[in-house]
């Protein structure tokens, strides 16, 4: 399971905007974007390679629950610690 970076733990006072899953040539990356008081967005990137599980950041930012849940449903990456893990939000049961 991929551990989250120390930098994310320091973003407690910022607002989480989005979590994106991007398929790049080198492998899969997850981009976290935060809004602080400056005009630009702060970006933190994690390269997860072939990992299937990433630690959830819901203890620090509760609104990550739905954003991570969407990635779990669409791409199959699991986020242990997310209250929405296992529940389906968008897709039908197949």
């Amino acid at each position: 399971m991929k551990k989250i970076l120390q930098e994310i733990k320091k973003t407690k006072s910022d607002r989480l905007v989005s979590i994106s899953y991007v398929n790049e040539d080198e492998g899969v990356s997850i981009y976290y974007h935060f809004a602080d008081k400056t005009p630009k967005f702060k970006e933190i990137k994690i390269e997860i390679g072939n990992e299937k599980e990433v630690e959830s950041i819901t203890p620090i930012h509760p609104n990550a629950a739905i954003l991570e849940g969407e990635i779990t449903e669409m791409y199959g990456i699991k986020f242990p610690g997310n209250p929405y893990s296992g529940k389906r939000i968008f897709l039908e049961e197949k």
Partner: peptide, 24 residues
């Protein structure tokens, strides 16, 4: 919006709309 362009074509476009942020 998050947009990534590779070789002149879009490789990934992610839209995070305001209703998704307020949904919780």
């Amino acid at each position: 919006h998050f947009v990534k362009v590779v070789n002149g074509k879009t490789a990934r476009v992610k839209l995070r709309t305001p209703t998704l942020a307020n949904l919780i």
